[in-house]
Every structure is written in structure tokens, then in C-alpha cells.
């Protein structure tokens, strides 16, 4: 409850600040789930539709923290051990967008394929 009102307040401020209309989160967006296990992404390849905003739900099943990072997607987020994280990506043009776990880049590799 508290966080919801706080969020609306923040959004109101932001609307004033940037004077662009902010789409609320309630619009339907495809949700893609990715798991981090043994410093690997499962699945390591996900396919998403082009020109659509997608919600990535990343579950970190490892006890250690990981940082989801992608230069191509312009995303960066620390995910603590045994936690999940929400990352919004897109809309994107068709193509391949690699992402990786910055703390274990040898193994934690994956890509988003946009079609």
C-alpha cells in the first residue's frame, strides 16, 4: 500500500518534471522468466517480439549475487542471492541482444533474440 502511493506520487512528480506522458505499468506486457543457476542463465536464449515492451523476471537461485548487464539493451541491475528482479526491456528492433552476468561473465551468458 505504502509503496504504491509513494510510487504514484513519484510518478506525478516525474510527469511534471519531464512533461511527457508516462505509460502506467498496468498495460499488458509479455513476461519472460529467466533463472540464474550455477552462474548460468536458464534459458540462455529468449525470444521476444519486436517493438514490444517486455518484462524480464530474473530469478537468482544461486546464493551469491549477480549483476544482470547488457550494453546492447542498456540495462544493468544487481540481483542479490536467492532473489528475483524485474527488468523492463524494449521496445526493440529485430536483432540479437546479448546479456551477461557481470559477476560471472565466463559462464553467465545469454541473449535476447528479437523477432
Amino acid at each position: 500500500m505504502f509503496s504504491r502511493t509513494k510510487k504514484i506520487y513519484f510518478q506525478a512528480v516525474l510527469v511534471v518534471v519531464c512533461s511527457t506522458s508516462v505509460n502506467t505499468v498496468h498495460a499488458d506486457k509479455p513476461v519472460i522468466e529467466i533463472e540464474i543457476r550455477d552462474h548460468l542463465f536458464w534459458p540462455s536464449e529468449v525470444t521476444v517480439p519486436a517493438n514490444t515492451k517486455v518484462k524480464l523476471l530474473v530469478y537468482n537461485k544461486d546464493p551469491t549475487s549477480e549483476e544482470f548487464e547488457s550494453y546492447e539493451l542498456n540495462r544493468e541491475k544487481v540481483i542479490m542471492g536467492n532473489r528475483k528482479a524485474v527488468i523492463f526491456i524494449g521496445p526493440l528492433l529485430p536483432g540479437v541482444y546479448p546479456f551477461f552476468g557481470e559477476f560471472n561473465p565466463d559462464t553467465a551468458q545469454g541473449k535476447v533474440i528479437v523477432e
Binding site: 513519484f10 510518478q11 516525474l14 519531464c18 511527457t20 506522458s21 508516462v22 505509460n23 505499468v25 515492451k53 518484462k55 542498456n74 540495462r75 544493468e76 541491475k77 527488468i87 523492463f88 524494449g90 521496445p91
Partner: peptide
């Protein structure tokens, strides 16, 4: 933008 608070 990543948090979906600003339009991407």
C-alpha cells in the same frame, strides 16, 4: 526507463 517509470 528501466523501471518503466519513464517511456522507453
Amino acid at each position: 526507463i528501466q523501471a518503466d517509470w519513464l517511456p522507453s
